[in-house]
Simulated assay, not measured.
Amino acid sequence: MKLSAPIPLFRVFDYELAKAFYCHWLGFTIDWEHRFSPTAPRYLQISRDAAVFHLTEHYGDCTPGSKVFLHIDDVEALHAELSTRPNPNMNPGIEHAPWNAKTLEVTDPFGNRICFNQSLE
């Protein structure tokens, strides 16, 4: 038996806002989308490198305001990249965490948070 990496689900309320945040600002790509009808809520998968998230507009799929801890090998490179694409609602900084890591935390327009963590060990 072998477990695979989990896929976090984030509740989103506006497709265009989610796309602007995750794709245009954070650099994720939409892998696929699903809707039961043209007016139904969307469910989509986004990815960047090995990081995969599911974003859902469906009521009851998950709780808004969740947080994901995501390992990264170069938090300063991510910080520099995000600085080239200004976001009027986010200006994250790099912090030194007590667990011997550098972190950068962002919050999407729906209150979901991603903590990018670079271990210094």
Rank of each mutant, 00 (worst) to 15 (best):
E16F: 06
N100Q: 11
W32L: 07
W25D: 10
L82R: 02
F110I: 03
R113D: 05
I72Y: 06
L120S: 11
E121C: 06
P86V: 10
N117Q: 12
K67Q: 11
P41W: 05
R11I: 06
A18L: 01
S66C: 12
R42A: 08
E16A: 15
E33K: 09
W25N: 11
R85T: 12
A97P: 00
T29L: 07
R85Q: 13
A101V: 02
D73A: 12
V12Y: 01
T56P: 00
A77G: 01
F53W: 04
E81L: 09
Y59R: 10
L26W: 13
L3S: 11
T84G: 03
A51M: 06
I114G: 06
V68K: 03
S119Y: 08
A20W: 11
L9N: 03
F116K: 05
P64M: 10
Y15W: 10
A5M: 10
A50C: 01
R11P: 05
D108Y: 01
I46P: 04
W99V: 08
P38F: 05
S83F: 00
S47T: 06
W25H: 12
Q118V: 08
P86I: 11
A101F: 01
D61G: 03
V106N: 00
I114H: 03
S4W: 05
M1D: 11
P41Y: 03
M1F: 04
L9F: 08
H96M: 03
V68D: 07
I30M: 10
Y59K: 09
G65Q: 09
T63D: 14
F10Y: 01
S4Q: 14
I46T: 05
V12P: 02
A97N: 07
L120H: 09
I7G: 12
P92M: 07
R48C: 04
P88A: 14
H96K: 14
P38Y: 07
I72A: 08
Y43G: 04
R85K: 10
N89C: 06
Y22E: 09
L82D: 09
I114E: 10
L104C: 12
D74K: 12
N100Y: 01
W32G: 09
H24S: 15
L70N: 01
I72C: 15
S66D: 11
K102E: 09
R48M: 10
F69P: 00
W25A: 07
T107N: 04
H71W: 05
G93L: 13
P92Q: 07
H54L: 08
S47L: 00
Y59A: 14
R35K: 15
H71C: 04
G27R: 11
P8R: 00
T29F: 03
F28W: 04
Q45E: 13
G65A: 13
N117D: 14
N112T: 12
F69Y: 15
V106I: 15
Q118W: 05
V106Q: 02
P41M: 02
R85P: 05
L17K: 15
T29Q: 12
R42E: 04
P88L: 10
Y43E: 09
V75E: 10
I72K: 05
L44D: 01
V12A: 06
Y15R: 14
E95A: 13
A51I: 09
L70S: 07
K19L: 14
L26K: 05
A77V: 03
P109S: 08
P109R: 01
S119F: 08
G60M: 10
R113S: 15
V68W: 04
F116R: 00
I94Y: 03
F28L: 06
C62G: 12
P92G: 08
L9K: 01
Q45N: 07
D61Y: 08
I114C: 07
L26C: 02
